[in-house]
């Protein structure tokens, strides 16, 4: 469904993606792990056109992702994104955040959009917070609203860019629980994360990215418990046993 072929991307003189190729199938949960600066977020942002890329191709269902083309709107309404810093609209309530896309981008009628949004907010455990502003919510709650906002577009896939990295450790669990449920419901997910246990338990496949190339990829359990590449082993050892 999502295809990356030999993708190259530089920011100025720094080459961040050096020929990344990957394939994400419908219904798969793929986790991308790796050190900071390896290009993990950049990959996600190339998929929905938040970044341009300099070489190779990125396609969604066969359509080339090109930020400047008219197709980009259609791609973006089919692939939602959840951000590390939530990026909720602070001047709108939780409910208004969730209905914004359906009403103003997809043209859904308010009478239809609101009940669906309420159902999504309940699904992420925030039915009672529909009229709260982001300012009044905790980080974990804000991220769950962001997930509901992503789901409201009825996407084919959701990209998660380090969704729990900005959260208080105690609030990480509630967000991961929602993500786990989404995976079990069959959502296609591409997740950039440092939560190795989550990847192990929920992901189908894992890609290990280092300095802009995929050093290792495979079945989640296999890559994470018996990594083949020395760098993967070193990374996992450092992350799982920091002291």
């Amino acid at each position: 469904m999502i295809e990356l072929t030999e993708v190259h991307k530089s920011f100025g003189s720094v080459e961040v993606l050096r020929g990344v190729s990957a394939s994400i199938r419908r219904g798969e949960v793929v986790c991308i792990i790796g050190p900071s600066g390896s290009g993990k977020s950049t990959i996600l942002r190339c998929i929905n056109g938040l970044e341009t890329y300099d070489g190779g191709t990125v396609t969604v269902d066969g359509v080339r992702v090109d930020r400047a083309s008219a197709d980009i709107k259609s791609i973006r309404t089919q692939i939602s994104m959840v951000f590390q810093r939530f990026n909720l609209f602070p001047h709108r309530t939780a409910l208004e955040n969730v209905i914004e896309g359906p009403i103003y981008v997809k043209g859904v009628r308010r009478e239809e959009a609101v009940p669906r949004a309420m159902e999504l907010l309940s699904r992420v455990g925030l039915g009672g917070k529909a009229n709260a502003y982001p300012l009044e919510l905790s980080g974990g709650q804000m991220q769950r609203v962001a997930i509901a906002r992503a789901l409201a577009m009825q996407p084919k896939a959701i990209l998660f860019d380090e969704p729990t990295s900005s959260l208080d450790p105690e609030l990480v669990g509630e967000v991961l629980a929602v993500m786990r449920q989404l995976a079990e419901d069959g959502m296609t997910m591409v997740v950039v994360t440092h939560e190795i246990r989550f990847a192990q338990e929920v992901a189908d496949r894992v890609l290990f990215l280092d300095h802009g190339t995929i050093l290792e990829e495979g079945q989640a359990r296999q890559v994470l418990t018996t990594p083949q590449h020395a760098r993967t082993q070193e990374f996992l050892r450092r992350v799982l046993t920091p002291i």
Partner: peptide, 12 residues
């Protein structure tokens, strides 16, 4: 981030 959230929802 507000621009990114808007763009990723498909807003022009």
């Amino acid at each position: 981030g507000q621009i990114e959230a808007s763009e990723s929802l498909g807003m022009g």
